[in-house]
Simulated assay, not measured.
Amino acid sequence: MRKSCRCGHVMELELRTVVYAKKVEIRNVPVFACTDCVSYEVLQPVKPDLKACISKLGEQPVKQDVSFGKQNELADLLHEQLLAWPDATDREMEHHMQQAVSERINLLLDIMGYAQKSGDEEWMETTERRLSQLSGFVWQAHFSNAV
């Protein structure tokens, strides 16, 4: 999955490990990387959750390894799809991601129904947050200038 870089070359979407405060490794963060100008850009829809994750760690975090997929549904799905389809073209990956997002939303809606029936407020809030991370994702908005 690609998009154009400000330098005019191509940025590839990769799952990277972000190191925070030299102590915390946050794995599988979706990042666009340009090998020509060596610039990086976190995928826009996951940026707020990455900031929230870092904020929760505080200024003096203990050494740890964090899976970003547990913080963000979209990052989790991208990780799953990139592992399942490593050689997919951008168009194929778009199809796989749209299907995966749809299936995950349906699953989360089912989970929300069970959470509501059981009256579990925390479960409902968690499920609602997970749904919101997926519901606004539009492929073309983030890959529209893909080369």
Rank of each mutant, 00 (worst) to 15 (best):
Y40S: 09
P86H: 08
K23L: 11
L13F: 02
V101N: 04
L13E: 05
K117F: 05
L131N: 07
G69D: 05
L78T: 04
A75G: 15
M11Y: 00
A21D: 05
Q60A: 14
K23C: 07
W123N: 04
A100Y: 03
D120M: 03
T17V: 15
E59A: 13
V19D: 03
K3A: 05
H95V: 13
L131G: 11
L43F: 14
L57Y: 10
E59M: 10
E12Y: 12
Q64T: 13
V66G: 06
R6F: 09
L43C: 08
L57V: 10
Q64F: 01
K63S: 15
L134V: 07
E80R: 09
N28H: 04
L57W: 08
K47N: 07
R104H: 02
R6T: 11
I111E: 07
K22S: 14
H79Q: 13
D120K: 10
V29Q: 00
E25Q: 12
R129F: 07
E121T: 12
Q60S: 14
E14W: 00
P86F: 04
R104P: 05
L83K: 14
G69Y: 02
T17W: 12
N72E: 11
V38Q: 04
H142P: 07
D36M: 06
G69A: 03
R2A: 07
A75R: 01
A141H: 13
Q81S: 08
A141W: 13
V101I: 15
V24S: 05
A75P: 02
M124F: 03
V31F: 08
K117G: 06
F32I: 03
V101P: 00
K63P: 06
L108G: 02
V46T: 15
E94I: 02
V19S: 11
S102R: 13
Q98W: 04
C5G: 07
P61C: 08
D49I: 01
F32C: 03
W123C: 04
E125Y: 03
Q44E: 14
K63H: 09
L82P: 01
M124P: 00
K63W: 02
G8L: 07
V46D: 00
W123L: 13
Q99Y: 06
G8V: 10
N72T: 06
L107I: 05
H96C: 06
M11N: 08
C5H: 04
T17H: 13
A33L: 07
M1P: 12
Q60P: 02
E14T: 14
I26V: 10
H142V: 04
H96W: 08
M112E: 11
D76S: 14
E121Y: 13
S67R: 10
A21V: 05
Q64M: 11
E41I: 00
R27I: 01
S118A: 15
A115P: 06
Y114E: 15
I105H: 07
L83H: 09
E125T: 09
F137N: 02
F137I: 01
I105M: 12
P86E: 04
L13A: 04
Q81G: 06
K117S: 12
V66L: 11
Q133A: 12
R16V: 01
